[in-house]
C-alpha cells in the first residue's frame, strides 16, 4: 500500500486537539495566575518597603515558591493538563520546568543528578533569552 494512502487514513483518525477549549482554559488559568501575581505585588507594595520598580522580584519569588510546593505535591502537572499554556507561559511554568527536573534526578546525586539536569528543560529558554538580548544589544549599539 502506498505511503500516501496510509498517511490519509492516519490523518483521518488523528483526534483533533480541542483548540477552543484549550484557548479558553489557558485564558482563564493564565489570567487568574496573573491576577494572583498582581495581588501579591500589591500586598508587597502596601505592607513592605517596595517600590513599583522593585516589587517584581519578591512577587516572582513568591509565585515560584508556590509552584515548588505544587510541583512537589504532584499537583502542578495535573493542573497543567487542563490549563495548557495558562500554566506554561507565566513564570510558574519556568519554575515548574526547573523544579520537576531537579526532583526527577535527585536520586542520581546532587552534583551529577540535580546539578547537571536541573536546567535540561529551562536551559534552552535561558540560552535563547541571553542570545536574543545580545543580538538586540548589538542592534541598539549600531543604531545609537
Amino acid at each position: 500500500m502506498k505511503t500516501d494512502t496510509i498517511k490519509t487514513i492516519a490523518k483521518k483518525h488523528d483526534p483533533k486537539r480541542p483548540l477552543a477549549k484549550n484557548c479558553l482554559m489557558s485564558f482563564i488559568f493564565g489570567g487568574s495566575l496573573c491576577a494572583l501575581g498582581q495581588m501579591i505585588s500589591l500586598f508587597y507594595l502596601y505592607f513592605f518597603d517596595f517600590s513599583e520598580e522593585t516589587v517584581g522580584d519578591p512577587t516572582v519569588a513568591t509565585l515560584i515558591i508556590l509552584t515548588m510546593f505544587l510541583t512537589g505535591w504532584g499537583v502542578y502537572d495535573k493542573i497543567a493538563q487542563v490549563a495548557g499554556a495558562g500554566t506554561m507561559v507565566p513564570v510558574t511554568g519556568f519554575g515548574n520546568a526547573v523544579i520537576s527536573s531537579a526532583i526527577e534526578h535527585r536520586n542520581e546525586g546532587f552534583v551529577l543528578g540535580v546539578g547537571s539536569n536541573m536546567f535540561k528543560l529551562a536551559g534552552s529558554v535561558i540560552v535563547s533569552g541571553v542570545f536574543s538580548s545580545f543580538v538586540i544589544a548589538i542592534i541598539k549599539t549600531l543604531l545609537a
Partner: peptide, 17 residues
C-alpha cells in the same frame, strides 16, 4: 516517562492521541 519523555512532575499538556 523519565527515559522517553519529560520529568514526571513537568506540567505539560498531552494531546488526545
Amino acid at each position: 516517562e523519565k527515559q522517553f519523555r519529560f520529568p514526571n512532575e513537568y506540567g505539560q499538556q498531552k494531546p488526545p492521541s
